[in-house]
Nucleic acid binder design. Structure first.
Length: 242
DNA sequence: ATGCATGAGCA
DNA sequence: GCTCATGCATA
């Protein structure tokens, strides 16, 4: 009984993401003293100003930063070459960053909050998620490039202060209580979605509606799923840039 | 560490 | 409606 759309029963969308888990760090959770400050409940303090300042300036799919013509133009403009945009450099920095961050005894969440204290123009706090993704290169190339200087600035500042101050038992741990959202797509449905995605990564609204109905999911959930799936394909680690 | 979600900006 | 940066909740 199939009439709207089928033909995906022969697909085998395997080899998605086999993220290995490095976990070679030391989760110190209460040793931040120099980079702290306002622990205001930053609930939605940043629900309207994030995608407009940190690298959301490239239309679609960043241009290869290795264009000879572009490199020349960049050089002529007196801007940096592709040293800051080089995936290799980013990767190296990300690792150095993580290493030194851990050495400082600071968690990813701590770093995120500390960024606001840097008071850099247009730079506010970031979430643990983002710091984590930066370290694991699971962000877009442009996003990595935009965040690098900021995190580098924090790192230098943090290490500088780590030299002066040494110990200061001050740990205002905040254990927020939150009840929010999060739909969970079951494995079978997920498999179907992946199969559809393999055939058509960008289904039309109607197609999405059809899929949603077949899988008994809300259309919005399916659309978002496809969007997120596309984003994943563009992340550094999996992009064909290495 | 990662899944599902929001919202700004663009077409 | 998409992309993109980013976040909360959760595994």
């Amino acid at each position: 009984m199939h009439h709207t759309m089928d033909g995906i029963d022969m697909l085998d969308p395997s080899g998605s993401m086999t993220t290995l888990t490095p976990m070679a760090e030391t989760p110190i959770t209460s040793s931040h003293h120099q980079l702290h400050g306002s622990y205001h409940s930053m609930n939605h303090m940043m629900s309207h100003h994030h995608s407009s300042h940190l690298g959301n300036h490239t239309p679609d799919g960043f241009l290869g930063a290795h264009h000879p013509a572009m490199a020349a133009a960049v050089a002529a403009a007196g801007l940096h070459p592709d040293t800051d945009t080089d995936p290799r450099e980013l990767e190296a920095f990300a690792e150095r960053f993580k290493q030194r961050r851990i050495k400082l005894g600071v968690t990813q969440a701590d770093v995120g909050k500390a960024l606001a204290n840097l008071k850099l123009p247009g730079v506010g706090a970031l979430s643990q998620s983002t710091i984590c993704r930066f370290e694991s290169l699971t962000l877009s190339h442009n996003n990595m490039i935009a965040l690098k200087p900021i995190l580098q600035a924090w790192l230098e500042e943090a290490e500088a202060q780590a030299k002066n101050k040494r110990r200061d038992p001050d740990a205002p741990s905040v254990l927020p209580a939150g009840e929010k959202k999060r739909t969970s797509i079951a494995a079978p449905e997920k498999r179907s979605l992946e199969a559809y995605f393999a055939v058509q990564p960008r289904p039309s609204g109607e197609k999405i509606a059809a899929i949603a109905e077949k899988l008994d999911l809300k259309k919005n959930v399916v659309r978002v799923w496809f969007c997120n799936q596309r984003q994943k394909q563009k992340r550094m680690k999996f992009a064909a840039q290495h």
